[in-house]
Amino acid sequence: MRPWFPLMTACLAVLSTGCRQDMYDQPRYEPQEASKFFTDGKSDRPILPSVVHRPDPKTEPRDELYDHYNLGIVDGEPAETFPFPIDRTVLDRGRQRYQIYCTPCHGERGDGQGMIVKRGFSPPPPFYGERPPTGKSPAATIYADLREAPVGHFFEVITKGHGAMYSYASRIGVRDRWSIIAYVRALQLSRYATESELPQQDRDQLSKVSR
């Protein structure tokens, strides 16, 4: 036997002890991991059909505001008002969420000319002004100008989807949906704002630009 042989064997033995993976892959599921136990192959289990939503007392109103907040419905009609006060914080959050989830199709300005529309997706109606005739989906012509649509209508569209638009209920939380609607209202307003309605600071800015 060569003298280096036992040395090599010893080295290899020391090195190979680190190769067991038991602690790296522990017998539990990570989120979204595949499962051999459940027949559908998913370790994430679906919510059972009979489960009833129970309002979170910290964030969700109960009682008479429940339908208003969670469904956008007041007395069986689309809500005309927001279920909570809208302030600057809500608008900023609304703008941020709008830019994540809505701009791909509706565009930064809400004109319905987002990047995905430019790539061939059905153009959504602009949030303001007469909608261009599409002749495609008759369901989409409830409101000739979306400025007339009550906030509850937007809530229903985000929650359930509309025409080519899929539901965003699983992507945008309820409060964020209202924040986005508030921001859409701001977009609508901004397109028709007159100079006299602007704060002095903005008017100064504007006069510099127009000059």
Binding site: P104, I116, R119, G120, F121, S122, A164, M165, Y166, S167, S170, R171
Partner: peptide
Amino acid sequence: YTCMSCHSQI
């Protein structure tokens, strides 16, 4: 479902 939000048409 998220993929198909756009790829239903694109």
